[in-house]
Simulated scan of single mutants.
Amino acid sequence: MKELADAAGITVRTVRFYRERGLIPPPRREGRIAWYDAHHLARLRTIAALLERGHTLNGIADLATAFESGRDVGEVLGLGEPTEETPVRLTPEALADHFEGEVTAENLATALELGYLATDGDDLVHISRRLLDVSAALVREGVPLAAVFDAARQVRTHADALAELFATTLQTHAGATDPRTLRPLAKSVVDAELSMALDRRLRKG
């Protein structure tokens, strides 16, 4: 434990306190010997970084619980499935920087539930660079992250319905067509219709 504490720049007493609070996982034991590894050191550095950003130990404990209940990155991303999105690997402290003041246990649990975030060891992986950037921009504009997630749920419902509509239309009327042509056609229609819908909404004031 002393080697771990020295590497993290904290005292053995602090490591023991974090362990008792459930902030770091238990060590691997061989008889009476406890082995700490790079995973424990990474967690201690994350705790230090989050404390520097104003998080409390209680808040960090809640985040750790949500983090550890998240789905593995392979499960969320569905490895091997085609996608145009670029996943983004983030440390917990980098995520806190993206959404300053909004990374709560509740919001983290929601992001994991929706599949926007997945766990990969001590890191998090966001499924889409575009969605990450847009979400962060909305938060900077003053929209609470919880409200962003509420809107995202509705958008996903409509997006799933649109995908089903386009797929059914293509299968019904152009069965021999390469299904890969569906994506650019559907995206063009949705982009144009959404643009015109925003025009109509903005004209209303």
Results as ranks from 00 to 15, higher is better:
M196H: 13
F149D: 12
A146Y: 01
G59S: 12
Y18F: 07
D97K: 10
Y116Q: 14
K187I: 10
L131G: 13
T172D: 15
K2E: 15
M1S: 14
A7W: 02
L182S: 06
A174N: 07
L165F: 13
H55Q: 10
L131F: 11
R28L: 12
V76K: 03
L202I: 12
G70Y: 00
L63S: 10
L79K: 11
A152S: 14
E141G: 11
H126E: 00
P87T: 04
L51M: 11
A5T: 07
S128W: 00
D133H: 09
A64V: 11
D199T: 11
Q171I: 03
A174Y: 13
A49C: 06
D133P: 04
I127R: 13
L170R: 12
D160G: 01
R200Y: 07
M1N: 09
L194P: 03
A5D: 09
G70L: 02
G175W: 01
R53W: 07
H173T: 11
P144G: 04
R71P: 05
L108K: 02
E3V: 09
D37Y: 07
A192P: 00
T181M: 12
I24G: 06
G121C: 07
R201F: 08
V12M: 09
I60H: 07
A159W: 05
I127P: 03
E100V: 12
T168F: 02
R28D: 13
F149K: 03
G31V: 05
D199G: 05
R129K: 13
F99Y: 07
T168M: 01
G59F: 04
R89Q: 05
E106Q: 12
D199C: 06
D133R: 15
P82F: 06
R16Q: 15
T104Y: 08
G31S: 07
R13L: 07
L23M: 11
A5I: 03
R32I: 02
L4D: 06
R43Q: 15
G9R: 00
S135A: 15
A34N: 14
I10P: 01
A147D: 15
G74C: 01
A49V: 06
R29I: 09
Y18E: 01
R29P: 03
V125D: 06
A105W: 03
G22I: 11
H40Q: 09
T104P: 05
H39C: 11
L162W: 09
T86K: 14
D199N: 08
T46Q: 15
G205V: 06
T83P: 02
V73G: 01
G78W: 04
A64K: 01
L182A: 08
G22Y: 07
A186L: 11
K204E: 15
E102C: 04
L117C: 11
